[in-house]
Design a protein around this nucleic acid. Structure first.
Ligand SMILES: [Zn+2]
Ligand SMILES: [Zn+2]
Length: 725
DNA sequence: AGCACGCCGACT
DNA sequence: GTCGGCGTGCTC
């Protein structure tokens, strides 16, 4: 037995790998899973390195022996392990947890990694004979046998016959189940539609720049970004490469997945909300690892899939905040995608109508190739945003008279109307008119939202709920006022005001499942719904051909926000929602209710669109020293005792290595200090360049666990945070 | 994070 | 007398 050790990534929140002795006769390679003793526990880890020299100073018996190898060959490639190491370093997260995050849940235990090939069905000789002799009346059986005779072995999904017919054929031994791998259907594009001039230029630019490169596909809604994606995919497939398509949410925007399927046939889905079981996810993971899957469409976590032949990455709606994980390993799937593509020598296509300022900045300075699709495919003029100054106007349930009148006008003309409201529930505040009491959450520094339909008060920050009182709990007055408005209230008001119209609410309260959403979307497309009231849910993807008016009930929230990204998000959201309006015969009208019609950001958005706003915001960010002109890291802490959170951060600040240019801001209490019964505080680091920031973070994070009192404090470090609270 | 050990308060 | 509270130490 050699005296050399292996270094193993163990799934525990510790910033180190652990070295083990190898049992006699076992040959281990990096990437193989192993069972190991860990303290008093037994865990599954992944070998990172073999041939590790033992520390001569280590006492006898320091190194324990691995129990067994779980895989005959590495499950993770060297490339995957290097990616894990990069992610662990960059996001300052324990290597064992990063490696675990790269594996599907089913393979984090001691389960064997076996591909279960979907059975295929093949015609037997007896079946071939039967085909000649079967009576004509056994039509469906004949069709089945004929299909197999013509096309060879087929997967179940490719067989047209119903289950009962296939069963009969199997029972008669005319057809057999076979495990022989059916040649994966080579996705051959069906006929491709002609490109517009803009699309053709974008496709040509992509073709002219093979290999790694980041391309921003900046196209207005309806400009045909998807067709450019599909051409790029076809190109990568033709070169025998795998394609990864990242989308914000599979469920809410099935259009892209559907278009890819229409063009290329079966496509694997991955990530959250993919509707797959743990076992199915493991199968997708394993088949991606073999290179068998040509195209994978997935959400954030799909960027961690093993893709040995990766030849193209597409990030659709690249500005979407859901690409950044908001807990645990806080990685940005968009940024990891760029890194992966670089390592694979593949192009990345970042698509958006409203690119993030980070991406836009790279395009401006030429690091990213800027591909623009400024025109809609169908020659519909883009909708024009119009500010509706509501100062001094009476607002009934949040709606001004001019907005109501516009709604009536559009309905009378047979148009559909969309009202965008950024809040769920009936009203965000319930206030006693007599004594000033308002419904506060017991666990948070926040008011509870009145959900009138359900007769409840619900805290949107911690989920706490209670029955809505009929009288003031403090003074028994019945004068309870609903302040502000959510979707429920606007919906109700519109029902009263337009009794003949069908009003439907689109939010997560009303639509508990995708089926319900689909049903309502279908009714909307069929013209059965006249007014749509909804949250962000309506901002994405869906095209409503009959929609002629979009109303933004309250654009002001973002204008008062302390979050430095609030205006960027407002611009993205309003532009997206506005993009829903307009139909073939006339441009859409978009009315934005505001109390601040002179606000420079709002003015810029209206007069010059998102691109103009982005230019303004970039200038402001540069002056303020904020991303993309600076790099941030946020250390957050929360504790049951108020002083503990701040105390921990003060201790952390005292440990902060001094590096030129890196500034600490704080610690300060979080904007909402108490949430879900815990007190929260934060310490922000700001740096003019990435490398200085990381020179600080690397030694610093190693010290944080050792801070006295760190035990009772939950803390996390967020590199490149998107929310500053 | 687990899971131990360890040393002080109110129970059968 | 012990059952159990959570402080703190460690995991190759
Ligand atoms: Zn009262
Ligand atoms: Zn709450």
């Amino acid at each position: 037995m050699s005296g050399l050790l292996v270094s193993v990534a163990v799934p525990v929140p510790l910033y180190t790998a652990f070295d083990y002795r190898v049992p006699d006769g076992l040959v281990l390679h990096p990437g193989m899973r192993v069972r190991l003793p860990f303290g008093r526990r037994e865990l599954t880890g992944v070998v990172l390195r073999s041939g590790v020299e033992p520390d001569p100073a280590a006492p006898d018996g320091h190194y324990r022996e691995l129990l067994q190898a779980l895989d005959p060959a590495p499950l993770l490639t060297d490339d995957a392990l290097a990616l894990a190491q990069w992610i662990a370093d960059y996001y300052r997260h324990p290597i064992g947890e990063v490696v675990a995050a790269m594996l599907p849940v089913a393979l984090r235990s001691d389960e064997p990694a076996r591909i279960r090939h979907e059975p295929a069905y093949a015609l037997t000789d007896a079946g071939r004979a039967a085909l000649a002799t079967l009576p004509a009346r056994s039509l469906r059986l004949r069709v089945l046998l004929q299909q197999l005779a013509d096309q060879g072995a087929l997967l179940r999904a490719a067989i047209a016959a119903p289950a009962a017919v296939l069963r009969r054929a199997l029972d008669a031994h005319w057809v057999v189940e076979t495990v022989a791998a059916v040649a994966a259907p080579v996705p051959v594009p069906a006929t491709q539609p002609a490109l517009t001039a803009d699309q053709a230029a974008a496709v040509a630019a992509l073709q002219a720049a093979p290999g790694f490169g980041v391309h921003l596909l900046h196209g207005v809604t309806g400009s045909g970004k998807t067709e450019v994606y599909l051409r790029a995919i076809a190109e990568a497939l033709a070169a025998g490469r795998q394609v990864l398509v990242l989308v914000p949410e599979i469920g809410l925007t099935p259009q892209l997945l559907q278009r890819v399927r229409e063009r290329f046939g079966p496509v694997a889905v991955a990530g959250s909300h993919s509707g797959l079981s743990d076992a199915e996810r493991a199968q997708v993971w394993l088949r991606a690892a073999t290179g068998e899957l040509a195209i994978v469409v997935g959400t954030r976590s799909a960027v961690l899939l093993p893709l040995p032949r990766l030849g193209l990455v597409i990030v659709d709606e690249e500005h979407d905040v859901s690409f950044k994980q908001q807990d645990g390993l806080r990685y940005s799937a968009r940024d990891v995608a760029v890194l992966r593509a670089q390592r694979a020598g593949a192009p990345v296509l970042l698509g958006s109508a409203t690119p993030s300022l980070e991406t836009l900045q790279h395009a401006v300075n030429g690091r990213y190739q800027w591909l623009r699709l400024p025109r809609r495919v169908r020659q519909v003029p883009p909708p024009q945003l119009q500010l509706l100054d509501v100062r001094g106007l009476h607002l009934q349930d949040g709606l001004s008279a001019p907005l109501s009148a516009a709604i009536g006008r559009h309905l009378a003309d047979g148009g559909q109307v969309l009202l965008f409201v950024n809040r769920r529930g009936y009203a965000p505040t319930l206030l006693c008119h007599d004594c000033g009491w308002s419904a506060q959450c017991r666990h948070c520094d926040s008011r509870m939202t009145w959900h009138r339909g359900r007769g409840r008060l619900i805290c949107h920050h911690c989920g706490a709920r209670q029955a809505a009182p009929r009288a003031c709990p403090q003074c028994q007055s019945r004068q309870l006022l609903a302040l502000g408005q959510g979707t429920e209230r606007v919906e109700e008001a519109l029902r009263e005001r337009f009794p003949g119209a069908r009003v439907e609410r689109f939010d997560s309260d009303r639509l508990r499942s995708l089926r319900q959403l689909d049903a309502l979307l279908r009714d909307t497309r069929d013209g059965l719904v006249n007014i749509l009231v909804g949250t962000q849910m309506l901002a994405k993807g869906h095209d409503f051909a009959g929609l002629t008016l979009v109303g933004i009930v309250d654009a002001d929230q973002a204008l008062y926000s302390v979050d430095f990204r609030a205006l960027e998000r407002m611009g993205q959201l309003l532009t997206q929602v506005a993009g829903r309006a307009g139909r073939a015969d006339r441009p859409g009208e978009v009315l934005v209710q505001t109390h601040q019609p002179e606000h420079p950001a709002l003015r810029r958005l209206v007069t010059q669109g998102y691109d103009g706003l982005a230019e303004l915001l970039l200038t402001e960010r540069q002056i303020a020293g904020l991303p993309p002109y600076a790099y941030l890291a946020m250390l957050r802490a929360e504790a049951r005792v108020e002083a503990d959170a701040i105390g921990f951060l003060q201790a952390a600040l005292a440990q902060l290595p001094a590096v030129d240019g890196v500034q600490a801001l704080g610690p300060v209490p979080a904007p909402m200090e108490r949430r879900a019964g815990r007190y929260r505080a934060q310490l922000l680091l700001q740096s003019p360049d990435r490398s200085s920031l990381h020179r600080v973070l690397k030694p610093w994070t190693l010290e944080l666990d050792a801070i006295p009192g760190a035990r009772g404090v939950r803390w996390s470090l967020d590199v490149d945070p998107i929310d500053l609270y």
